[in-house]
Nucleic acid binder design. Structure first.
Length: 569
RNA sequence: CGGAGUGUGGCGCAGCCUGGUAGCGUGUCUGACUUCUGUUCAGAAGGUCGGGGGUUCGAAUCCCUCCACACCGACCA
């Protein structure tokens, strides 16, 4: 539609012999000012040095000469805006379009034929899955789905630190505290390993002798010379990875085959590349191999890539990872999602990589997000433990279950619903804000069925679906009139593809979240003021189609956020 | 000190790219209906958009500067 309006404006300008193409068309903030609005008169008035209001009137008259039937009227307003009002026919057709396209409604082909790799989550074996991982996962999954909706083939990648001091600390902890009992579930064993890590980590910081012991273990983890260390390592790595899989399943993420990358593999690959480029890209300094980013861009730091003990740092592993990704999958774009604390270091690493592989430079994109903070101040989970991503997720599901106590349905169904709704509460809390800032997580508000929350969006959708189910026994034969007036609901629905496109351009999921909340709210207004399944309602057929279109839009939109709609709530 | 973020009604946020005179949710106050899932609907009050300066007919939006908060800044990731 935007294109059509642009075209008729250009024609009108041509007829008025005005040469200008640098105008914008957008949706006014308020529906009172039409469905689309353009600043063309104000832009032209500047260069022509005429009164924008008069020029707007002139253009308006020209536009009215051959108006397309999707537009019912054109008006001038304010300092020189031209507002377009879409016609009944347009909205009726757009509802039909949604019903036709179904799960494809809102998709576009901007990235058709492109392969995009998204790396996200990145938890570390032997350590708990924490809140940051939860955030990165929610964002990465949503970004993956947004690019997928824009026509790209998406590859989901995960990068995990299976070597390094944290592993040695955990192994020391396990050696000290013993193996867990066989009766434990995978999740419980992983939790136990997390506790061992904390124990080892604390001792590392407070006891010089133990610190030395752990450093010895760290070396053994790398060189694989100690049978006992190897045994604990293999066991612990497998358990934690399996526990992560359970969480991914709950969150709705499935990483692509062969796209689990590990630091232990990336380290030697990166190290080789770094050593080959000493003197060219990297320099020796104080016994270490470093990269002076500042030589290429004043803003970049100097970073150590191989430390003075000859061990590769995270930067070097990142080089190995990036090169491996491109050689293995050759994506048109490789996106990495992490917290902002990695922003500066990643710039340095990417600069170093582009000096070696110039063709990767424009194909690397790093997306960063803020931290999660708690509305209530101090963070402690319901059971009084340190909050991990996993405990947060389960607390959220428990809170939903509590709210559903009065519902008349079986325990099994309640449990299933509280999973889907609990995940949604958390995901929405993360995805509703722009990525740049920290998010304030309020558990109570996040599971609220009203207002700005994932459950609210789900609940509204469920109610819509419930009407559709009831309507199966409702005869609409004599209720096929098309209503004259256009509801706000219709004015939101047709905008969905534009919102998706915008979210893709910015790579910002919150645009979807904000839109869906407005959409759901407009549905509730409609729902609250219209009785659909009534004999007197001559528009029932159209209304039901409208509700179907609404439901489809919510379904597709929530999918982009990684949220499912349950059958009932 | 340098870099890169963030700052908008009590609280949580959108709008900033592309300038048109501030919107959403929650909370507070008032009213409605109890129906297709009332966890709803209608309405009201509440903001000099962190401070100052500049550009412009017009600035939350662009530029400069200051302040506050959290992040990064050579051998952690």
């Amino acid at each position: 539609m935007m294109e059509k309006i642009q075209k008729i404006i250009q024609e009108a300008l041509k007829n008025l012999s005005i040469d200008e193409s640098n105008f914008s068309i957008e949706h006014p903030d308020d529906f009172k000012n039409g469905d689309y609005s353009t600043n063309v008169a104000m832009v032209c008035a500047k260069s022509l040095k005429t009164n924008p209001k008069e020029l707007a009137e002139k253009i308006k008259l020209e536009l009215e000469k051959n108006l397309i039937n999707e537009i019912s009227k054109v008006e001038t307003a304010g300092p020189g805006f031209i507002n377009f009002y879409l016609s009944r026919e347009f909205f009726t057709e757009s509802v039909g379009e949604v019903l036709n396209k179904k799960e494809n409604w809102g998709k576009n082909q901007i990235l058709s034929g492109k392969k995009i790799m998204v790396e996200y989550t990145d938890p570390n074996p032997f350590k708990p899955f924490h809140i940051g991982h939860l955030m990165t996962n929610a964002i990465g999954e949503s970004i993956s789905r947004i690019v997928e909706f824009s026509g790209a083939k998406t590859v989901r990648a995960n990068y995990q630190g299976d070597v390094g001091p944290h592993v040695a600390k955990a192994i020391y902890g396990i050696m000290k505290m013993g193996l867990p009992s066989d009766g434990m579930s995978i999740g419980e064993k992983a939790h136990y390993i997390g506790k061992c890590y904390t124990e080892g980590s604390n001792l590392y910081d407070t006891d010089e002798n133990i610190k030395k012991e752990i450093e010895v273990i760290n070396k053994k983890v790398y060189d694989k010379t100690d049978g006992e260390v190897n045994k604990i390592y293999d066991w612990g790595r497998a358990i934690t990875l399996e526990a992560f899989e359970e969480i991914y399943k709950l969150l709705g993420t499935k990483f692509s085959d062969g796209c689990y990358f590990f630091e232990s593999i990336m380290a030697p690959i990166g190290e080789k590349i770094v050593r080959e480029n000493v003197g060219k890209v990297f320099t020796e300094s104080d016994g270490a191999i470093v990269f002076h980013g500042g030589e290429y861009d004043k803003k970049l730091h100097t970073r150590v890539f191989i430390n003075s003990q000859g061990l590769p740092t995270y930067e070097t592993k990142e080089i190995g990872l990036t090169v491996t990704k491109f050689e293995k999958e050759n994506p048109d774009l490789s996106i990495v999602v992490t917290a902002t604390e990695q922003a500066e270091y990643m710039k340095v690493v990417q600069k170093a990589i582009s000096l070696i592989h110039g063709d990767y430079e424009s194909r690397m994109n790093h997306i960063t997000h803020g931290m999660m903070r708690f509305a209530s101040g101090k963070m402690s989970s319901r059971k009084g433990n340190v909050i991990t991503g996993e405990s947060l997720l389960h607390d959220s599901m428990d809170m939903v279950l509590e709210k559903m106590k009065e519902r008349e349905m079986g325990d099994e169904e309640k449990n299933k619903i509280s999973e889907v709704v609990g995940v949604s509460a958390l995901k929405y809390s993360i995805l509703k804000s722009s990525l740049g800032s920290d998010i304030i997580y309020d558990p109570l508000k996040s599971v609220s069925f009203e207002g700005d929350s994932g459950p609210y969006l789900q609940y509204t959708s469920v109610r819509a679906n419930s009407i559709l189910n009831k309507a199966k026994d409702f005869n609409t034969d004599d209720k096929k009139d098309i209503p004259e007036e256009v509801t706000e609901l219709e004015k939101y629905i047709y905008q969905f593809p534009e919102v998706v496109e915008h979210a893709y351009e910015k790579l910002e999921p919150h645009h979807i979240a904000t839109y869906l909340t407005e959409l759901a709210s407009s549905f509730n207004t409609f729902y609250g003021n219209t009785q659909i399944l009534k004999e007197e309602n001559k528009n029932a057929l159209y209304h039901l189609n409208l509700i179907k279109a609404f439901y489809q839009t919510m379904k597709n939109g929530l999918w982009l956020l990684g949220i499912e709609i349950p059958e009932r709530m």
